[in-house]
Simulated assay, not measured.
Amino acid sequence: MTKIDSFAAVLDDAAHHAHDVQQFPAGQFDLDQAYAIQRASIERRVARGEHRIGIKLGFTSRAKMVQMGVDNLIWGWLTNTMMDEDGGVVDLKRFIHPRVEPEVCFVTRRTIDAPLTALEAVDYLEAVAPAMEIIDSRYRNFKFTLEDVVADNCSSAGLVVGPWSRDFSGLPNAGVRMQFDGRDVQVGSTAAILGHPLRSIVQASRLLHQAGLSLPAGSLIMAGAATAAEALTPGLHVQCRIGSGAGALGQVAFSTR
């Protein structure tokens, strides 16, 4: 087993059996190797019968990039077993220390196989929806380096997607409100996602191109968090609403047990 495969096995086992692991010693792998570990970990999931349904983006705020000392977003894979139903119940036993973030989700209508411009991006999209991502670092105490989190599939663990819309006009600077049991826990704006969520499609196309990959039509793209994450506990009703009035994206919700 190679070093890459060894790290991938540790992280995949932690995710599969919902147990945390110690952060790896510093300098064990660089960023390119971290993405190789991520790919090897996802291949282990595919071998168990999962299939890829899209990608998620991380570090979509300038403040987060500065904090981590990077110039680009990071990204990870989404698989079918990560998705839960809008309005359904999410079993927290399959996670270690889950947190939830309000997001915008896109579905592609054309294969993304080259870097896109901002003008081209919307032509590659079928629809947009309000969404929430459940993140769950496999590292103890949610502590990690940039390389660690990339290797760990950027903490991707679950997602819930609301109703789809073909209207993209309400995306810039739409209000975002996430509630637990009817109480506001995070309030923000879609402008926190790279200034405009459609810019995440441009960035995703560049990242995929750099990795020598394409994204098939019908794939999901989680554009990145609009606010900070909130820790999840059993017995909650979690709801996120994006926008208001005629241009609102709508709402997405789930309960926890």
Rank of each mutant, 00 (worst) to 15 (best):
A14D: 01
D12L: 05
V21T: 12
F29G: 14
G49S: 06
G49H: 03
D12F: 14
D32T: 15
H19F: 15
V10D: 02
P25G: 04
A9Y: 01
A40K: 13
Q38F: 05
Q38W: 00
R48M: 10
P25F: 00
H17I: 09
Q33P: 10
E43G: 13
Q38Y: 02
P25T: 00
A18P: 06
H16K: 11
I37N: 06
Q38N: 14
L11P: 02
L31F: 13
L11K: 00
A18Y: 00
F29A: 09
D13H: 03
E43V: 08
Q33E: 08
R39M: 09
Q23L: 10
R39C: 09
R45I: 04
R48T: 12
H17R: 13
A9S: 07
L11E: 00
A9G: 03
P25S: 03
G27N: 08
Y35F: 08
H17V: 12
R48A: 09
Q28P: 12
V46L: 15
R45P: 01
D30I: 15
H19W: 09
R48L: 13
H16T: 11
Q28C: 14
A36P: 06
G27W: 00
V46C: 14
R44W: 02
A9I: 11
D13R: 04
L31Y: 06
R48I: 08
L11T: 04
Q38S: 15
R45T: 07
Q23E: 03
I37D: 00
L11F: 02
Y35G: 05
D13N: 02
A40W: 01
L11G: 00
R44M: 12
D32C: 13
D12T: 07
A26P: 15
V21P: 02
A15W: 04
Y35H: 05
Y35L: 07
F24Y: 13
A14S: 07
F24I: 05
D32E: 12
V10T: 09
A9F: 02
A14T: 07
G27S: 09
R45L: 10
R39S: 14
R45E: 02
D12I: 05
Y35Q: 06
H17Q: 12
H17F: 11
F24W: 09
R39Q: 13
A14L: 05
P25D: 03
Q33N: 10
V21S: 02
F29C: 10
A18R: 05
S41H: 04
Q33R: 13
Q38T: 14
A47R: 13
V21R: 04
A36D: 08
A26Q: 06
Q23T: 09
Q38G: 14
D20W: 08
H19V: 08
G27K: 04
F29L: 11
L31Q: 09
A34F: 03
I42F: 05
L11Q: 01
H17A: 05
E43S: 14
S41Q: 10
D20P: 15
A15G: 02
H19R: 12
A34N: 06
D12V: 09
Q33L: 05
D20R: 09
F29Q: 07
V10Y: 00
D13K: 08
Q23G: 15
D20M: 07
V21K: 02
A40L: 12
A36S: 12
A9K: 07
A34S: 14
R45V: 06
A47L: 11
G27F: 01
I37Y: 00
Q23V: 08
Q22F: 06
L11C: 04
D32F: 05
A26C: 06
I42D: 01
P25Y: 01
